[in-house]
Simulated scan of single mutants.
Amino acid sequence: MTRLRPPVEHADRLPRPPRRIGLGSRLSRWDVKLSPYLYISPFFLLFFVTGLFPLVYTGWVAVHDWDLIMGQGEFVGTKNFVEVLTGRDFWTALTNTFSIFLLSSVPQVFAAIVIAAALDTNLRAKTFWRMGVLLPYVVAPVAVALIFSNLFADKFGLINSALGVLGIDPVGWHSQRLPSHLAIATMVNFRWTGYNALIFLAAMQAVPRDLYEQAAIDGAGRVRQFWSVTVPMLRPTIIFVVITSTIGGLQIFDEARMYDQFGRGGADGQWQTLTVYLYELGWTRSNFGRASAVAVLLFLIIVLVGLLNFWITRRIASSEVKR
């Protein structure tokens, strides 16, 4: 008696023996699942060690009476914040910080865009000019501050000597508040304008050249192409540069610290920024609790100003797109 075979079209419905999964296939599956997290884990580990933990620990120190020599004291709650906010030095340093930030960041962005537009043209020795623009960023901040502090010296500085030749009275670059802010902002612009210009240059080179050809066919000149094609395509990059300039501008330390030989922000705090004030509280007055309170307040100010800048730039960009 012969055994009937199942039809061919129904053979795939028959139960199959269980497949044994080997150790190699299991490891390959785990590798596919875990390898992306392993690749990005170094960043999060470094962020936790160098970013998140110091921030949390600074908040812990800010609510304690902490001395540089004696270490942690008793819990004081918001006492350090109240002493900082009710003091005159904090508000003077905050005013100086915003003044230097506005005098440096706003012209810096415009100058960087203009320089990037010039570098995006058909210049000879493009690599030379691009490296030359980046050269001030490579120079050490301390060296830049020492050179510019001598240039802006009140008595024997090169700037006042040139003004004297023109018949203009010498300016108190160290004794007056606004001139000292201009001098420090000049240092910041000298260091960071070229760096931001290269960022804008990279964004400009990513703009499709067909847009310029179409604009030229429509009769648009170079200036019109710049404002109608280049600037709108740079909106994401402008937002990025504005936010990074805000974060860096509100943390100005090297230029203000090295602007004179004493490094305290002037005899009356003419150019004392929040970071210099923080440094003085921590390392000169040995009051780590109040210094940490200033650091926490500075962090909150940077976050608020950064969010405000992001909101304003997004609103401007969206309104221009609707037009």
Rank of each mutant, 00 (worst) to 15 (best):
T2L: 07
E9A: 12
R13G: 02
P18I: 06
R19A: 12
I21K: 02
R26Y: 08
L34W: 15
L38T: 04
Y39Q: 13
I40N: 10
S41H: 09
F43Y: 15
V49S: 13
T50K: 11
Q72G: 00
Q72I: 02
F75I: 12
T78F: 14
N80T: 08
A93K: 09
A93Q: 07
L94C: 14
T95K: 14
N96E: 10
T97V: 10
F98A: 11
L102K: 11
L102A: 15
A111M: 14
A116M: 14
L119A: 09
T121K: 04
T121P: 00
A125P: 05
F128C: 08
Y137S: 02
A140L: 14
V144N: 13
L146K: 10
N150K: 15
N150T: 15
D154A: 14
K155S: 10
N160M: 10
S161Q: 10
A162W: 12
L166W: 04
P170I: 02
G172L: 06
W173D: 04
H174K: 11
L178D: 05
L178Q: 07
S180E: 01
L182Q: 04
A183L: 01
A183G: 01
N189W: 04
T193M: 03
T193G: 03
N196Y: 03
I199G: 00
D210S: 08
L211P: 02
E213M: 02
A215M: 01
A216L: 12
D218F: 02
G219P: 10
W227S: 11
W227C: 03
T230I: 06
P232N: 07
T246G: 14
T246L: 12
G248T: 08
G249Y: 09
F262K: 09
D268V: 09
T273E: 01
L278W: 01
G282T: 05
R285D: 11
R285S: 12
N287L: 03
A293W: 05
A295Q: 04
V296H: 05
L297G: 09
V303G: 11
V305N: 06
G306A: 12
I316A: 06
I316W: 08
K322L: 06
R323D: 01
